[in-house]
Nucleic acid binder design. Structure first.
Length: 644
RNA sequence: GCGCCCGUAGCUCAGUUGGAUAGAGCAUCUGGCUUCGAACCAGAGGGCCGGGAGUUCGAAUCUCUCCGGGCGCACCA
């Protein structure tokens, strides 16, 4: 509701400036550094100073005395070198906050596609994958909260080298048949088994370079889709995808559709893209040099600092397509530009009834649903792949799809690495070189990493110990449910508290913490607010009790006024986090709101309050804190335990 | 060599797109449960915002340069 005041003020001020000075200028409102300065600050005089060639202070004085009255604004004063500080009419804001809320405007036409997770289906998910999925899922929640229509895609590379390597491990190294592998899948933690096998085969390649022939044989078999190796490939990839979906579901992460590499191959997506690329002369057949016989994109197309010789191979001299080529085709499909589509079949239905579909190659038995064709596409991919993402976007540009190129966004983030201390705690031996580093990169090939499910399990265990010691009267099931919510809250918050381009040096002590700036701290606030409301009994009808004059009287008390402002800023926080593209800002807001509530909790004993009107107002504030805390947590994908 | 990212309190990180006296968590020290739950709160110490130059009313933020660290730059994905 505060944002309504904000836009009204900005509009009035910019209109006045246009009339008075004939200057069109965007008016930004800031939150003053100190609460004593009022609710909003206008730095607009500084901006005008340059154009009007006048001292900012003088302009501010002029504006302050000449501005017409703005509804909801009580007073304004000039401060500092030229700030105009505004104070709001407390009664008016209070009453409008308490009145039943009007629905938030829904924004945007067209569909936004967010692609995240994208884990190779050949081994268990690790903490690096968690950052991707949690970041992507939270951004999806932010978009949906702002009224956008969002489709969540999780791309499955089920025919790539990584799956092939695990198949090689099963077939050549361990002599396992499809029946053997089926038996392993039926047991628990197949993804863990493959984790070790993948490390084993990677080491084997290193020791026996000749065995790399197994890999290319297997890759060919998987692409052809026939024979025992292909069967193994399907078994492994399909089973691991199920493992990944289960792991992500523990964190509350769901998808709409899983497009798979195998269908991109079989439905010949590439052929359509290839025709367009050739026709528009976006790529050309190299006649000489190191790339002779390849179809390449000139370097200047994706990087202005590059020479054309630094071209990127799209089709190899043996006629096969590189990853980038396939990704251009896939990206075109996401925008509905390919002229081809997948078929789909339901893979599973989540507990809330939401289905997730997987691509298939044949119309037989396919469900009639439509995916892709987005207006805007966010690809959540780590920053190491920015070069390749640039090439994909350049492909769209070269095809003259400029609008889509501009709406193709690499939502990049830095990797999660391991702190040397974390390695020591896991019993991993580090080379002297690695020990000297601030962090060590996770490596699936070396089996070096923290598995997602292990981390979740140990978080639940330590949360359970805390919960059990504080709530001995509760049942084991209830204790476990609360511990799970707390564990997920801690994990998701931990992954979100860092801004995207900060490398996370993973540390168990920090990740397992439940105090300070953590998810559980925010949950604790929501739980305590709920407890007060529960103890208070029947609530009054706030809108009739807390009229504007009553609000005006109560809000003369500075503390209450500040808490009212605190619970009124969620919309602004969401909008700011969204426009910055930073889920971390949303996390930080939730934490700050929880801090405000903790202060409120200590300042005002709500239930003991003897003044009836004030008690009503305190109860309303408590309800408001609870609602905004829960809303913020929901956007972060964090639930509120019944107790903790 | 070229490109991108980072350098802010002892440690881990924010910093509202150039604004007022640079913030938070952890750690350390001191204090607070007979109160709606202490997974909390109050207080203290701790800073040449990597160095230097520039841009202007004003710089942690923009430009240049140097230093230190990370990641990319395949007919792998």
């Amino acid at each position: 509701m505060l944002s309504q005041f904000e836009s009204r003020i900005a509009g009035a001020v910019s209109q006045h400036i246009l009339i008075r000075y004939g200057v069109e200028i965007p008016v930004a409102l800031e939150q003053p550094k100190q609460t004593a300065f009022g609710e909003f600050a206008l730095p607009v005089a500084f901006q005008l100073a340059r154009q009007l060639k006048k001292a900012p202070r003088a302009i501010a004085e002029e504006l302050a005395s000449e501005l017409p009255a703005i509804k909801g604004v009580k007073s304004l004063e000039v401060a500092g070198g030229g700030y105009i500080n505004l104070r709001l009419d407390r009664g008016a804001l209070g009453a409008s906050a308490i009145a039943p809320a009007t629905a938030m405007a829904t924004a945007g036409d067209g569909k936004v596609i967010v692609e995240h997770t994208n884990i190779n289906p050949n081994k268990a998910a690790h903490i690096g994958h968690l950052r991707n999925a949690i970041l992507g899922d939270t951004f999806v929640r932010m978009l949906r909260e702002s009224g956008q229509r969002v489709e969540v895609q999780n791309y499955i590379d089920n025919t790539g080298v990584q799956v092939a390597d695990v198949v090689v491990g099963f077939h050549y190294l361990d002599g396992k048949t499809p029946a053997d592998v089926r038996a392993l899948i039926a047991k628990d933690r197949f993804d863990y088994y493959c984790w070790d096998l993948y490390a084993k085969i990677s080491q084997h390649y290193k020791d026996n370079p000749d065995s790399l022939q197994w890999r290319s044989d297997t890759l060919h078999a998987i692409e052809a889709g026939e024979g025992e190796l292909a069967d193994l490939g399907r078994l492994v990839a399909d089973a691991i995808v199920v493992c990944h979906l289960n792991t992500m579901l523990r964190l509350g992460i769901q998808y709409d559709v899983l497009p798979r590499e195998s269908e991109i191959l079989h439905l010949k997506f590439w052929a359509s893209a290839f025709e367009q690329l050739k026709e528009r002369k976006a790529i050309y057949l190299e006649a000489e040099g190191k790339n002779s016989g390849c179809w390449v994109m000139p370097g200047s197309a994706f990087d202005e600092n590059r020479e054309d010789e630094d071209s990127k191979v799209i089709v190899r001299s043996n006629g096969t397509v590189t990853y980038v080529g396939k990704d251009i085709a896939y990206q075109m499909w996401k925008f509905g530009l390919l002229g081809k589509d997948f078929y789909y079949t339901p893979l599973r239905t989540y507990g809330d009834g939401h289905p997730v579909y997987v691509s298939t190659a044949s119309p037989d038995g396919a469900t009639s649903v439509a995916f892709g064709g987005g207006r805007k596409v966010y690809n959540v991919i780590d920053s190491r792949q920015s070069y390749l993402q640039d090439v994909v976007v350049a492909g769209l540009k070269a095809l003259n799809y400029h609008e889509q190129a501009a709406n193709s966004i690499h939502f990049s983030y830095e990797m999660v690495a391991l702190s040397p201390r974390a390695c020591v705690e896991m019993g991993i031996e580090l080379s002297a070189e690695d020990q000297a580093k601030a962090y060590v990169e996770v490596s699936g090939r070396k089996g070096l990493g923290v598995k997602a499910d292990d981390l979740i399990d140990s978080l639940i265990n330590s949360a359970l110990a805390e919960v059990a010691s504080r709530n001995q009267d509760k049942s084991a099931d209830d204790q476990f449910a609360a511990a799970s919510a707390i564990a997920i809250g801690a994990l998701r918050y931990f992954m979100l508290k860092f801004t995207r381009n900060t490398v996370i040096a993973f540390d168990f002590q920090e990740a397992l913490s439940f105090t300070g700036e953590t998810g559980p701290y925010v949950q604790y606030g929501a739980v305590r607010a709920a407890k007060i409301l529960q103890k208070a009994g029947d609530l009054p009808d706030f809108a009739t009790v807390l009229t504007a004059p009553v609000c005006a009287r109560l809000l003369e008390e500075e503390g209450l006024w500040q808490y009212l402002l605190a619970v009124s800023r969620t919309d602004q926080a969401i909008a700011a986090a969204l426009s910055a593209g930073e889920p971390a800002h949303m996390a930080r807001y939730a934490f700050q709101l929880a801090q405000q509530f903790a202060n409120f909790y200590h300042d005002y004993p709500v239930i003991q309050e003897s003044d009836a009107e004030k008690r009503s107002f305190l109860l309303w504030l408590t309800a408001q804190f609870r609602a905004q805390l829960e809303r913020s947590l929901r956007i972060l994908g964090i639930g509120v335990p019944a107790f903790m």
